[in-house]
Amino acid sequence: MIAVAERINGMFKDVRRAVQKKDPGPIIELAQRQTEQGARYLDINVGTAAADQLAAMRWLVEVVQGACKTPIALDSQKLPVIQAGLEVCDGRPVMINSVSGDPDKLDIYMPLAVRHNAALVCLTMNVEGVPQNVEKRVEIAMTIVAKALEHGLDPTKVFIDPIILPVTVDQKQPMFICEVIRQIKTVLCDPPPSTIVGLSNISQGTATRPLINRTCLVMLQAYGLDAAIIDVLDTDIMDAAITADVLMNRIIYSDSYLKSARM
C-alpha cells in the first residue's frame, strides 16, 4: 500500500505556525519522521496558513525537498497553487492532488501531469457533486480513464479517488466504495488505473476514529486499494496496512516485515 503522509498540512497548528514564521524546523522534522515511518509520498497542503498560498507552497516544497528524498504530493484545489509547487520540484516523483472528474478540468490537469511526469489524483465527482451510488462513481472513473488514454497519461499514474463519506452520514457508503474500487481495478482497462482514498473522512464525528480508520483501510485494501492519504505516524494503522499487504501476498513476509516495509 502506498502511504501518502498527511501531516504537512496548514490545517495543523504546528505547520500553520511554521509557514507563517517561515520556520523550516518543524517541517523538516515532519518530513523526516514521516519518511522513517514508511511514507511513500509526503502530501503538502498549505491550507489557510498564508495569505500568499503560491509563495507558501513554493517554500514548503523547497523545505521538504531539502529534508529528504521522498516523493511529494502537491495538495490543493487551486491550479495556480499546484503549478507553483511544480515550478520548484527538483525532478523527484510527484503527485498532483487533486482534480474532479469533469472533462474540462481533466483536459487541463492531465496535460500538466504528462508534462511533469506526475501522478494525478482524480476524484469521482463532477459539477453535480459526489455520487451516492456505485454506478455513477464508476461512470466518472471511466471518463477519467478515457481522458488519460486520450492525453497519453499512463493509467497506472492515474489515482482514482472514489471519495469516502463519513460513516455517520451514510453507513451504506463504505461497502459502496469497496465495490467501486473492485470495479476500477478489474473492468476499466489493463493495466488498471491506481486507486487512492483520503481515509480519515470515514471517521469524522465518531468516537473511535483510529480504529475505524484502520479497519476501513484494511477492507479497502482487500478490494484492491493501492494508496491512501493517512497519518503514517499512527503506528497501528501503518502496521495494519503492511500486515494486510503481507496477507494479500503483495509483500513477502519476514520476521522483520513491519520494519523492512518502512525502510
Binding site: 513477502i252 513476509y253 519476514s254 520476521d255 522483520s256 516485515y257 520494519k259 523492512s260 525502510m263
Partner: peptide, 14 residues
Amino acid sequence: DINIAKQVNTLVIE
C-alpha cells in the same frame, strides 16, 4: 527460504 532471505538482508542493512 524466501522469508529468511528477506530477514537476513534486513538484519544486515540494519
